[in-house]
């Protein structure tokens, strides 16, 4: 029975169009897939023959593409070697003055830097009870002991720069100006622990009181 039936030839003119559309869709999606794959897989673009920061290198013996600075190099920023700003000293003695005037903005910056780099051991109050000390690090002296209250401000600059006792140098992490700002903030911390209400300017005091409410 079925063998006898004739398959009608569809003369609907939209058919070839559909077929063409289908073909176009196949081509398009193939192109799309290839294009998407291209972005990621093209090794020349995604992995260019250059060093990204801290990328390993087979060329140097220590395996690092980042090269240490040649010994004795003077930073362009630190061309004023030997000045108070960079040594913390005047005539070979630790200075008790700042190399630049400390403004409120400097003090805020000093506070911020202190809280980042110093408070982990020295504590936010400067009492030497930071979190790392509570976890077993050798306790640093409190800033509020007599020896450090009397120490010249250059001493703090010097310790941050060169380290002291169990403390490593922070010179690589904190630039000279910020070291002085931290020293200024340490001075503020020292004042804060023995301050009286009368020491606070009236307008600041009012602000503090309204904040407290």
């Amino acid at each position: 029975m079925r063998q006898g039936t004739i398959v009608p030839v569809d003369i609907n003119p939209t058919r070839p169009l559909r077929r063409r559309l289908g073909g176009a869709a196949v081509a398009l999606s193939l192109a799309l897939v290839m294009a998407m794959a291209g972005c990621r897989r093209n090794p020349d673009m995604a992995e260019q023959p250059k060093y990204q920061p801290y990328q390993p290198s087979e060329f140097f013996a220590d395996g690092s593409s980042a090269r240490p600075i040649v010994e004795g190099t003077v930073s362009r920023d630190e061309h004023r070697v030997g000045t108070l700003l960079y040594t913390g000293m005047i005539d070979g003695k630790l200075a008790d003055v700042f190399p630049f005037p400390i403004t409120a903005a400097d003090m805020r910056r000093g506070q911020e830097r202190y809280n980042i780099y110093c408070s982990v051991c020295h504590g936010r109050l400067g009492d030497g009870q930071g979190m790392v000390v509570q976890r077993g690090f050798k306790q640093p002296p409190s800033y509020h002991e007599k020896r450090l209250i009397e120490a010249p401000v250059g001493h703090f600059y010097d310790v941050i720069t060169h380290g002291y006792g169990g403390m490593y140098s922070y010179a690589a992490r904190i630039n000279s100006e910020d070291r002085w700002r931290i020293a200024a903030y340490i001075r503020a911390l020292q004042l804060s622990q023995n301050a009286k209400t009368a020491d606070v300017p009236a307008d600041v005091l009012q602000n503090m009181r309204s904040n407290q409410k």
């Binding site: 006898g4 289908g22 869709a25």
Partner: peptide, 30 residues
């Protein structure tokens, strides 16, 4: 002689239409 079964019509229609979905599905999966 008849080569295709009459159901081939349906299959042909469906496959032409279906290829769009197939391509779409491939693109979606990719």
């Amino acid at each position: 002689p008849q080569i295709f079964h009459s159901s081939a019509n349906t299959i042909a229609k469906a496959s032409i239409f279906g290829v769009v979905f197939l391509v779409g599905a491939i693109a979606w999966v990719a």
